[in-house]
Amino acid sequence: MLKKRIIFTLLFDNGSFMLSRNFRLQKVGNISWLQKNYNFSNVAFFIDELVVLDVSRGQRDLEAFLAALTEISTGCFAPIAAGGGVDSVVHAKQLLRAGADKVVLNSALFEQPHLVQEIASEFGQQCVVGSVDLKANGGGYDIMVNNGMRKLNMPPSEALAWHMRGDVGEIYLNCIDRDGTGQGYDLDILDILPTDWNLPVIIAGGVGNAKHFAAGLAEPRIDAVATAHLFNFVGNGLMNARRALVREGLHLAEWPDIRAVDLGRAG
């Protein structure tokens, strides 16, 4: 059967990787910090998928982002989705050329639906991850666009129903209220999905420990659980969390440790 996924999300802002709490950003370190001190190449062997987002608030430095993406993808043998401010097919293609397999679109989903269609028709529906940021409004949720700064004046289920027509391959739901808090996922955000929703769903926002992953993975409507917190699973944290979840019987993929596998170095 199809396994559920654990996704790691890296947030990039003009040269640095960031921590985010309720969408307020805090600088952590650059690409060399990520590789040398954080040992990201090792962390990457314990995830099912990687998301890399350029969340720069001001002018984006696309060249720097592409360079970081290229370097990260070199040692990552899991699928990579990248995005942040994607505003053209050319931009999407640059991300794919830098090592991404999928393009993450957020504001464009609602502000440039034709761009979403163009990217889907150029690279396929499976190449488009629709990222939706949600904020509680006392009773329900609002979709927020432009880095969570502007409220979309349309009910979420209506706004999303439009994307079931075939231009989006997966949806990444992030709860701004839980983002970076470590309080666990807000599973109620799933209620914004139209009742006949039939695309894979990724949930993000709030993971603090393996139990939070387990709660997300146990929810039938969820296909993948994401964390963007660089410090919740340091060292072997992600490896240990993953092994504990498999022991608990959650349906995660398994593969041998890179140190234990004989690749026969064919060259």
Binding site: M1, L2, K3, R5, Q126, G169, N198, L199, D223, A253
Partner: peptide
């Protein structure tokens, strides 16, 4: 009902 595309690790 299954979701299409088929995305993720499978056996």
């Amino acid at each position: 009902q299954i979701k299409v595309p088929h995305v993720g690790f499978n056996r």
